[in-house]
Nucleic acid binder design. Structure first.
Lengths: 210, 210, 210, 210
DNA sequence: TATGAATGAGGCTTCATTCAT
DNA sequence: AATGAATGAAGCCTCATTCAT
């Protein structure tokens, strides 16, 4: 048992090592630009070894998303559990903090999520991993929903169309159109997103609070 | 003269034919997934022909973005020019309509814009095309800015951090994390985005209006 | 007949126009680097037109060699015919002048002749053109031979290995022109080159030693 | 240590295996006619494998030239070092032997050297390989020069136009090897060829006249 | 006769994946 | 378990050649 356990732990450590390397390489070169060779090199392993831990490139990539969705879930759970004693402002602030941190955890999460949608990617995933992805997404959505439902139930938030959770998407829209240009203007892509997030949240809070 | 003109027109028609096919294929398979062969087949042309009208795959792709940015500019100009006689609500509505239509024009614009950022893509573009892209982006930004500046100048809108134009991006964030799941729930991705956009705009308007 | 003749003449003019352009383009870009499009542009014609005058790219290329071989023959004939009244020194000078001029006529003749050897090229030629090439090569060789034979017969030149006639010159210049033909004659390219090298070196040694 | 060494050796063996196959294919089909697929087949490897040992087709091709230039250098060094105790006749014979062997080593060296000149080829080489090529060419030229200079210094050889050192030899053989370098030295390729032709002819005349 | 748009075969190259060691 | 050399499928792109006008 001890040995069994130790082996399992060792295996998990390797997986993490590879994922850390993969994340680094993917964020620099993007999914298509990154080669398994690149990732192996970054992880100081050989290409063949990656395949002992991940079925293929798509699955390695998706595992990163799993990890960040797990982190998102964790943070959202925390917000839900602590929400009861907080004022609306505090709840919003708490949610904002959570999302900030998720973003810090992986600044290119957006691009990754886009890639994840592609049916070609999904086709290559093992049923288990696919199930995990769906489960985590659903869970995140429910948790987010719960935060708002609680707020509404207590009369702190105004009621709204159930889908509105993920709203405000016009920014998805115009914001991104101007992304490239914005980078030029702000000259620090990372901070810009954070600033924008901050401002967006202000407006969002104003919109959702009574 | 007549012949010259006719040929030019014919050539432009071909370009459009290819772009229409490319748009269709790219939106189904994504940039990497789509092959030039696919696009040629969709356009009922041979692969070689594509290269008579577009220098390479990246340039064909980017030309699609040029087209939508031109359309965006057109719509924004219209909003700016008509803005003077409108109430704040009408202005917002007018802008919303414009963005709706842009979205209708190309629902996968977001993904495209993400791809466009990649330096690998930009490397392959002709200087002319690159300049056009930058020019159009900048112009869009200025027009958007003008709409809000006018609103603020007239006292209709509350003043805000200058970058805030493209803000509200947290939706890019949470919205997209949940994108995949949302699709499952709504089961009609296109309508969902439209609904979301609508709601987002409501909130947005509430945030920006005095 | 007058019309017939005029048409024929006109046709020949066009052929020349194309060959002039081809020569220019080939000498700048080499055979592989030059495209039919390039040549058409240089000739201020359309690509399709080239095929009205030349069966294919290889045949267009080879026609240039035909032309220079014709010129070489012309010059050699002139040397042979005038040789009788000249001193040995004058004969050599005369031959030298002829070869100079051939070289001036087309400085990249060597490279062209190399290309011409390739069996892939020869495969694409019409039987007529192939026969012309062989005939001209053989004729040049015979003429060169005659010059030396005459010199030997008159006791002006020292006798030498039968192949040695065109030897040195081969190495310098015409050998390459006649490469293809030489191969046929000697039927063992490798040994021939070695023999030639041997003889050349003898002469070379004689020239350089005090 | 042993393992490291064995791997390096194994790798070098593979490189040689590929180069041998490439040499065979190139000499039959020429550079353009030979496909990487052909070479892979000849080497009983897959196309992809070639790229583990050579950056691209041009670099594989050029590596063959590197090899023969190295061999040429080796032989020339040997001639230079042994020259002191030899009579003029022996020196010439020694040089002849060296050049014979180089020719035996690769009978199509001339064609290869022609191809190597093309700027399109040089563009695709790694700086390292390019530097090696230039270095070896220059070295060969110097060694050749040294042989003649020594001969002249000792009074065994007649002095001649400074360019004449490599002249005749150029025409016969190595001139082509050193073509690229010669161009740099003379800085006027066209005139250089003419000069060389002139000198060659002088010697030629001296050799053939009684 | 001349055009030039269109074709499509084929080459170089990359890279995810495998497998013998 | 780890390696990393080898594979080979597949994509982008070029360009000689054709053919409808």
């Amino acid at each position: 048992m001890g040995i069994q356990e130790r082996k399992k732990r060792e295996r998990e450590r390797r997986r993490q090592q590879i994922m850390v390397a993969a994340k680094r390489v993917f964020s620099v070169k993007g999914f298509t630009g990154a080669t398994m060779e690149d990732i192996a090199q970054e992880a100081e392993l050989s290409p063949g070894t990656l395949y002992l831990y991940f079925k293929n490139k798509d699955e390695l990539f998706s595992s990163l998303s799993i990890r960040i969705l797990q982190y998102l879930n964790l943070r959202l759970e925390h917000v839900v559990n602590n929400e009861k004693e907080l004022t609306p402002d505090q709840k919003i602030a708490s949610l904002r903090e959570a999302l900030y941190d998720v973003y810090e955890f992986d600044p290119v999460i957006l691009i990754n999520m886009f890639h994840l949608q592609s049916s070609d990617t999904l086709k290559n995933l093992s049923p288990q991993l696919l199930a995990d992805l769906k489960g985590l997404s659903r869970s995140s959505l429910k948790l987010l929903g719960k935060i708002f439902e609680d707020g509404i139930a207590k009369g702190d938030f105004i009621e709204r169309h159930p889908v509105a959770l993920a709203d405000i998407v016009w920014a998805i829209f115009s914001g991104l159109i101007l992304w490239e240009e914005s980078k030029r203007i702000i000259n620090d892509n990372k901070n810009y997103l954070k600033q924008t997030l901050e401002i967006a949240f202000e407006i969002f809070a104003r919109g959702i609070k009574k």
